[in-house]
């Protein structure tokens, strides 16, 4: 709004709604209120112990000051960092549908390589959403008509031909909570974030990973990528490739390669294809080896 990108006619302050709790659910899941602050969620005992990937993703996002203020619902709804979207001047299909995409042939080093369309290649900026996508979270909403429970992968829409539409919320519909189902695999989970500077910076690539090994083979694996997708990217091809395989660099590299085979890079962000694969391997090696960063 400060940059004249959005010009809403009416703003409603929802900060007084009683939606800021972080609750442990009886079966081992979490229910996170939409107004819970990032910093509170990151420190909640149930999150730290049962979902380290969520806590780590939160702590690697934004800055301490922002985490103290930013809500979880707001985090999911944050707008993209594409400088052409934010300059309020360049053609941008997300800001001004039909005007074109200046990023396609512009300065797009930070842009997405997965889930792109010829209308938009803006990267989804959230960290915690990547962890939540890996954990199969569910977004609970309340609208004028009814309540809905939206699986988080469906909450984030691919740009396709309608990049202006980023999530399926209807007019008057509000996120009330995010539920994370019990996920024993998440106890061995990690969020790795790679970026140009050490803090207060968006990811070039990030990886949320969780893995359960049984008899040397991968029994369950969760893998999602940030910094490379137009939405928080669940790496389902890689997961499918990994299940049942022996944990090791070869199987990790094979899975990473399969996931990134679908990448559509531009000249300035082509490095992300290789970087993302190496990041996936690093995350899985770290989880399975106790490999140190």
């Amino acid at each position: 709004m400060r940059q004249n990108v959005l010009r809403p006619g009416l703003l409603v302050d929802i900060n007084d709604l009683p939606l800021n709790r972080v609750e442990d659910l009886p079966e081992g899941g979490l229910r996170i209120g939409a107004l819970a602050r990032m910093s509170d969620v990151a420190q909640a005992a149930g999150v730290v112990q049962r979902f380290p990937v969520i806590s780590q993703a939160l702590l690697l996002g934004a800055s301490a000051q922002l985490r103290n203020m930013a809500s979880m619902g707001g985090n999911l709804c944050q707008r993209v960092r594409c400088s052409y979207f934010r300059d309020a001047t360049s053609p941008c299909n997300k800001r001004d549908p039909g005007s074109g995409c200046a990023a396609l042939d512009g300065f797009n080093r930070g842009h997405a390589i997965l889930g792109t369309s010829d209308k938009c290649i803006a990267t989804h900026p959230s960290d915690v959403a990547v962890a939540l996508v890996a954990m199969d979270a569910v977004v609970h909403t309340r609208g004028p008509a009814d309540d809905r429970a939206i699986p988080i992968e469906e909450f984030f829409l691919l740009p396709g031909d309608t990049p202006e539409r980023e999530h399926p919320l209807e007019h008057g519909e509000l996120i009330v909570a995010i539920e994370v189902p019990a996920t024993p695999t998440a106890r061995l989970s990690i969020y790795l974030k790679f970026r140009d500077r050490e803090s207060y910076e968006f990811a070039l690539v990030s990886v949320a990973a969780a893995v359960r090994i049984q008899d040397g083979a991968i029994a369950d694996v969760r893998l999602a990528l940030g910094g490379v997708g137009t939405k928080p990217w669940r790496a389902r091809r890689a997961e499918a490739s990994l299940v049942g395989k022996l944990a090791g660099e070869a199987s990790f590299a094979e899975a990473a390669g399969q996931e990134l085979a679908a990448a559509k890079p531009r000249p300035l962000n082509a490095f992300k294809v290789e970087l993302a694969q190496r990041a996936i391997i690093r995350a899985l090696m770290t989880l399975t080896n106790g490999d140190t960063r």
């Binding site: 400088s83 042939d105 300065f107 803090s199």
Partner: peptide, 23 residues
């Protein structure tokens, strides 16, 4: 520089990076 428009493509402190304390 975005040569198509002759404008700087990263004219903000969010896009023009300088070190933070952690660096």
């Amino acid at each position: 520089m975005d040569t198509r428009h002759g404008r700087w493509a990263n004219a903000s402190l969010g896009d023009y990076l300088v070190p933070v304390n952690a660096d």
